[in-house]
Amino acid sequence: MFGIIKERFHQKYRTLDFPAKEPFLPGRFKGRPEIKAINCANCHICQDLCPTEAIQHIDGHPAIDLGRCTFCGACAQCCPQKAIAFGRNYHVASADRKALLVKAGDSAAFPTPQALTKPLFRRSLKLRQVSCGGCAACEADTNVLGTLLYDLGRFGIDFVASPRHADGILVTGPVTKNMAPALFDTYRAVPDPRIVIAVGSCAISGGLFATSSQCLGGIPEEIPVDLFVPGCPPNPWSILAGLLELQKNR
């Protein structure tokens, strides 16, 4: 008993006063990419190397679709003109799928969810998590929001054990054929109005498994998504920042 109390003092209070204070991000953290408007000519090395076909060339400059990007950094490493750099901005969640296409010179904040300013969810947001072929990384970085540093509960956000108790679902993974029926069942079991959050490039676009015959290439159209959080996996702070956008709790 005394041992536990002594250890409790040692372990200290560790919750970060987010969003008032900025979180620690390591020097090599790869956040939202910044692209310079350079002349690529015929050099498409980045496009050839990209594991998820996330890069296209628009008006002669590279553009990255964050909905497909795994933030592996191969493009930034291989570019002979150093036109691509992954910045430190961890606010990468967007309400608009199209806005995730980052073009040269883009730096404006991504659109925040309008429909979700519904006061209904502002103080209490209960989510059901559905993993549909996720590799456990997106799941782990969502789960970690419940630990001391993040303490998700203080924002009124919780993950619940039944879709009937939920205001929405948070989906991870490229949606395998084998999980599609369970995803639809869970979605339909959540009472209206309900929201859908896609966490990770797999859920948004299929990611690395976009062309797999065993996957649907992300959340199917029949399930409209309200918030996209790109990454492979997204940093927990990116997910938390996205969830707070949803609540307009900032």
Partner: peptide
């Protein structure tokens, strides 16, 4: 089990060389 079956081994056979390591990093994400 089987709900998580993404066809990873099949993807590996077809993937371009630069996608192999990223795919395997997702074999089991942890």
């Amino acid at each position: 089990l089987g709900y998580q079956h993404r066809g990873l081994e099949q993807c590996l056979l077809q993937a371009k060389p630069s996608a192999r390591l990223p795919l395997l990093e997702c074999a089991a994400g942890d």
